[in-house]
Design a protein around this nucleic acid. Structure first.
Lengths: 224, 224
DNA sequence: TCAAAAGTGTTCAGGATACACCCATGC
DNA sequence: GCATGGGTGTATCCTGAACACTTTTGA
């Protein structure tokens, strides 16, 4: 089936890496070093070569361009594959996008392309259609809050329910009722109460919780 | 960024084409003409060459291998992109899968690879991991029944509520309550009552309905 | 004693579920 | 007149939404 004349399209991989900073959802961007869009902010991305999987390519790209390893990310999930406009004489390109969720991600001394986390709520105009890709990833993340334990990947091992609520609020973009939020999250059976308290500030200490699982768990669906 | 030495992975496109036959959900399969898995049933798929989009490749592959045009399909949706095991010396391959939904799809005189629709409930062992891909597509379709009008792509222009219910039941794999089903579907505001009746058989004629839209519509979400 | 965040229950409305009988037709 | 599928309504349960005050601590 494979002719000798078969020439594959260019394949690229792009990553939408989220983490919480200062109670805001932020996304990792780099400054493009070359045309097209030289100097513009963009998602970290690059070519996928023969002999490496898309995950391997993602890891390599994040490492080289931003000093981030996928091992620092609690969740990595494929988003969508775009047919991109040709960027070279080979014709159409295919772009596979991933979403990654982390916490305390360090950008180890890679300032060549100035990797930085930007608040998702106030993004500059990005290269290509990267703004749309981020919106898509954000929607996916919003939806997953409702029926998975994804939030674990964005929080420290132990956290207070108020911290957890602030993550939900930042991602959903709406304030939530404290009592209803606690009732619901506790009823999902994804959290584990610890015996520890966080005592910070001049107020009553807060109970610390952990997630029962540190990997993505999908809760039961609901249609008939 | 693009070295002259860049060699992309092999890119393939596979289609999971569903239609209703005899009140059952069925999927289009072909018999593989070459190794690997020569003689085994498989999803129609093939190489994506430079210069064509994945949609174009899908259309070409379906046309050549099964005599099906994507224009016969009411819905075409990308499913997932798999890193496949290398099938040739180029190394890893990337496989982009699509789901297509049709009705009355004709396989125009292409019996070279014996294209046929098989009941999803009773599939043979397929080549590669195609059984898993079909399960994935089936899950996606189930989920979409709940919050979109996808079913339009599987039904004739006019249909009875009983026909519609039978599509839902076949896909979900459970019987549904007639009164509750009608109440719910009618409340979604995706159907349009016609003035026509279907009079077949020795019983009361049934009201015919159409879908208000003949393109995919997503209903409102529900999280906070 | 004051400020600041933690923690906690009840009421209400709307949607989902369960359930059984009469209707219109062809033969 | 009978067999066949078409068509309809109500009572109940459960989930989601709204809503305000007391508790514990540090300063």
């Amino acid at each position: 089936m494979l002719q000798d004349t078969y020439i594959p399209p260019t394949v690229t991989v792009d990553g939408v890496i989220f983490q919480m900073l200062d109670e805001k959802l932020t996304v990792l961007l780099i400054k493009r070093a070359r045309d097209p869009f030289m100097g513009a902010w963009a998602l970290p991305g690059g070519y996928n070569a023969a002999g490496e999987t898309t995950h391997e390519a993602l890891n390599r790209i994040l490492t080289v361009k931003a000093g981030v390893s996928v091992r620092q990310l609690g969740v990595v999930e494929q988003l969508y594959t775009f047919d991109s406009v040709a960027r070279d004489p080979r014709g159409h390109a295919v772009s596979i996008t991933y979403m990654g969720l982390g916490k305390g991600v360090e950008l180890n001394g890679h300032d060549a392309q100035s990797p930085q986390f930007f608040s998702v709520a106030h993004l500059p105009k990005l290269a290509y259609d990267h703004n749309k890709i981020i919106v898509y990833a954000h929607e996916r993340l919003k939806a997953k809050l409702a029926y998975t334990n994804v939030a674990f990947a964005l929080l420290p091992h132990e956290f207070t329910l108020t911290q957890l609520q602030s993550v939900y609020e930042a991602i959903l973009g709406t304030p939530l009722d404290k009592r209803n939020f606690r009732k619901r999250l506790l009823s999902l059976d994804i959290l584990q109460e610890t015996t520890e308290l966080s005592k910070e500030g001049a107020h009553r200490p807060a109970r610390l919780y952990t997630f029962r699982d540190r990997e993505l768990v999908t809760l039961v669906r609901s249609f008939d």
